[in-house]
Write a protein that binds this DNA or RNA. Structure first.
Lengths: 392, 392
DNA sequence: CTATCTATCGCAAACGTTCGTGCAAATGAT
DNA sequence: ATCATTTGCACGAACGTTTGCGATAGATAG
């Protein structure tokens, strides 16, 4: 058994084993009263502390300039305590050594990361990705980074994303809930940390935080009004899940028009679906078999509306002569489909921009009093509905 | 002049001004030999160090459990040095106190952030946002966050985004260059840091880093072959800017088919555009005025192809009877337009997923040897081109 | 019972910043 | 010349972790 050599007295006689620590054999020299293991210098080369390959730090510049770390930091931050000559000298040196501040260290001491978190149901449709685009632009303008999470319309995923993001990583959160999300305890639990949260598009009214919404009620009102004015009397409406505030708002807008025009609402014409193609088509088929036929379909989303148009066309139904179809959202496909889709532009990008601006404002002002902003949309008359006659 | 009171001796007589520091007046008490400013306790309440409103840290748990910070850290990290009882005790306490580790502090000491950076030209089109979606999914599976930057097809924006992201913030970078980007020094400058970079979709061959590409040459080959087989002989092709590798690859695929079928290439049929609608339409108009007319248009992107279809239809040109139109990319709109667009599915989401997987592999293995992966796409025959006769 | 070993914990240094304060030298006022 | 003030810089603590190593009480072997 080759005895270990004590690094202090350089003898081997009085050295004995002293347990195993993290897989390595440890030794103990009775003479020197010294514990040691055989593998050393794991973390950094202690023999030559200069030969690190790390990016240059303030310490490196300080050493090169012959000043303290503090001075370098202050010089680079334009602190008034530093003289013009020193500042200049240090800046030149920092440039030369290609110094880039370590954002992580800055974040640790400043307790802020200049990062916003975004939780969004989906990125593969322009509807949401354009919101994200708006968010990212506004954030970048203010020097904020954006980290994103897709919940994929899964409530559980939303919860885990939320918890992951809120761990000291972000200065504020933007969230657009999934279709599944009907309880909000996971958000409520995070409110005691002092990280502001702003909901956008799909919001919950039971939370006392800021919200950015599309003007769903007015939007649905506008669309329905235009359908009525064009002569439609039996307008079927496709809505989202019943517990979503968006659904309620749109239904309210729709019903308000019927009431104003004294049209008796037919509950069979109001259907709540989960956006899946099957549920949409099932609703449409039922409508088509109704005894007093329908003369218009107002769909929750442009995507469904486009599917409906294709379906009706395949069944030989003329649009808009027999049935008018209107969508909601103003996605690009609505411009491509034939006939071109009448819809309501909810200004998704503007929603994202406004949400980000509000969040940044809350972060900077440190004032978290809840505000709500409605983004006004715009009715877009195209070809899938008849033109209003103007007699009303 | 109200003299300041010394916080030590509580006298005002021997206190004199001592410069201005960070905007605040400083004082000096000759008796106590003590410097002070009037505003105190900015960083934390030093009088009652217990009454912080910070999230619970290891230190808090340590104090509550009566052990050292080290022990708490090790208990929570399942370090073998900690006994079962202690570990249990501490975990229970941590749960109770709602402890969440500070990711920033972890990142600082571990020198890794578990974060990937993505620079992407645009988010408002499904083409790129679905790549991002793929990236995000793969990253999330491995516990990595994703921070995104849009370059908005601006070279300068790409550069500044790149520099901002590379400052210790991310463990690896995924980049898809802008249309403007023809020099790559800004990327080359970052290669000496040991942060792996992977290019995807739009790549540069002059950089020795990993790349994930669509199979442009085969894709263009497949599309062109199908046009030729359907009887087209004068196939106009719309390409991107000449300096993009993608352009070269597609042109090569196109030319290879012509050569194989012994069709003499006509330089007037090959146009390089910058994706703007005007440049596309200008090219189309020139083609339509050519003496021996064209019988097919193969477009760089589905978006342009759809625009071309609408343009040709508005001029009364039958598709595909008079002119076939094929796109590239397989965007959703191609399915909506009439006639439905024949195109090539480049599998954007798969490109994103593969890029993220490769980057993660490089990060974990610490092996940055460049690899290149071609993502195989799929030709999609729809209605905007004639069916191949099968005689060839 | 002694010699050795094991299990379990704590100390303190690092990671790269920012910032309150100390302090000597230069400057200004009388 | 003397004292009051300003200037310019440095020291060291703090942010919340991780981790190498030291230390000790109990266990085990001989």
């Amino acid at each position: 058994m080759p005895r270990a050599r004590c690094p202090k007295c350089n003898k081997t006689e009085r050295v004995l084993k002293s347990g195993i620590i993290r897989g390595k054999q440890r030794f103990y020299c009775k003479d020197c009263n010294y514990h040691f293991t055989l593998v050393h210098n794991t973390r950094k080369s202690r023999s030559h502390p200069d030969t690190h390959d790390r990016p240059t730090s303030l310490k490196d510049i300080a050493k090169a300039a012959g000043v303290s770390i503090t001075t370098v930091s202050r010089a680079l931050n334009n602190h008034p305590d530093i003289s013009e000559v020193t500042r200049h000298e240090i800046r030149k040196l920092a440039d030369l050594m290609n110094y880039q501040p370590n954002i992580i260290a800055q974040s640790l001491v400043n307790r802020s990361t200049n990062t916003l978190g975004v939780i969004i149901p989906n990125l593969e449709t322009t509807f949401f990705s354009s919101m994200l685009s708006g968010i990212q632009h506004v954030a970048a303008q203010s020097g904020y980074r954006v980290v994103i999470c897709q919940s994929d319309e899964s409530h559980l995923s939303e919860i885990s994303n939320l918890q992951a993001l809120m761990n000291n990583m972000i200065d504020g959160l933007l969230i657009c809930h999934t279709l599944e999300t009907s309880t909000f305890d996971h958000v409520r639990m995070q409110l005691n940390r002092n990280i502001p949260i702003v909901q956008f598009y799909r919001v919950s009214e039971e939370l006392e935080i800021s919200k950015i919404l599309a003007d769903d009620e007015h939007g649905a009102f506008d669309v329905t009004v235009n359908l009525v004015r064009s002569g439609c009397k039996r307008i079927a409406v496709l809505l989202g899940p019943k517990y979503l505030p968006i659904t309620g708002k749109r239904e309210a807008g729709y019903l308000k028009v019927l009431k104003k025009w004294k049209i008796k609402p037919d509950p069979r014409l109001i259907r709540y679906v989960n956006f899946s193609n099957e549920s949409v088509m099932a609703a449409v088929e039922e409508w088509l078999n109704l005894k007093p036929g329908i003369d218009a379909i107002f769909s929750i989303s442009d995507k469904s509306a486009v599917q409906i148009i294709r379906h009706l066309k395949s069944r030989g139904i003329k649009i808009p002569q027999a049935i008018s179809v209107a969508g909601f959202g103003n996605e690009y496909t609505g411009e491509i489909v034939e006939p071109k889709l009448t819809t309501f532009d909810v200004k998704t990008k503007e929603i994202g921009e406004t949400a980000a601006r509000m969040l940044l404002e809350q972060i900077i002002s440190k004032d978290n009093t809840p505000k709500t902003i409605l983004i006004k949309g715009e009715f877009i008359q195209r070809e899938s509905t008849r033109k209003p006659s103007g007699l009303f």
